[in-house]
Amino acid sequence: MSGKTGYPHPLVGAEWLSARLEDPGVKVVDARDAEDFRRGHVKGAVSLPLQRILEDEQPERVAALLGKLGVEDETLVVTYDDRGGTHASRLAWALERAGHFKVAVLEVEFRSWADRGLPVSLKKPLEETKMHSVRENIHIVATGEEIREKAGSPHMVLVDVRSRLDYLDGHLKGAKTMPWKMFAGRGKVLAGREEMERLIDEHFISRDKEIITYSSDGASAALVFYAFRLAGFQKVKLYPGSWKDLMSAGLQVERLKEAHYRDLLGDISLE
């Protein structure tokens, strides 16, 4: 379970997990909406919609929520979603930030889990409250202030994981464009480690750099946060807010002038 960064391996396979559903040391957490959870979930999973975490991400609150779900400090939490792993990653990141380091993302979406005939349940799980301590981890959080301060630094790479079109419309000064979908694997939320290492190498980002990822919603950047970590990067941070938040932080934005790429987008009568 331990990757070369010293962090736990951020991804677990469907087969690996299905063999451990009864393991008291493993807790599966469903990041989808409560309604989706009611219609069927991984057997034994508990529900923690990402939305609920985002309402208030204070580590104390997150730790309390975890405790209520029966997660102890040493429990391995495995998150999943139906959003290409973005919500599961964002949830996993929030847990890490609150000091719960034993966390991983399921490498497939729920529908693929169900399609493979792996155990699914409709039952509301029994939740037994446990104690969870709070150890805030600030090393994985990037703030607007920090991005401003480190702008232009040769030691930091700012990674914009929004779509290429969003990037062209305007991006943080100096950011690299790596749309999050380029990290997806075949039927998996992330490609294999070697493929991701190659992809990152081919974009000329070296392992000694500090990485800060940002996205339009904060969630897809969390998936890419784990991609970089999986590829062996030691210093990876997520800007957990949205593009809108970044804009209100007053950061410097670059745009292409007089580039008519939008005219390549199909029918003008649909505009």
Partner: peptide, 28 residues
């Protein structure tokens, strides 16, 4: 959708083009 602006362009020589890629995207 992944590497370009979400559209494809058909050419008069019967090719199809993807626009606004980084050169770094090309090997993949």
């Amino acid at each position: 959708e992944v590497f370009s602006i979400g559209s494809l362009h058909l050419t008069t020589r019967q090719n199809i083009q993807l626009h606004w890629l980084l050169f770094e995207d090309v090997p993949e």
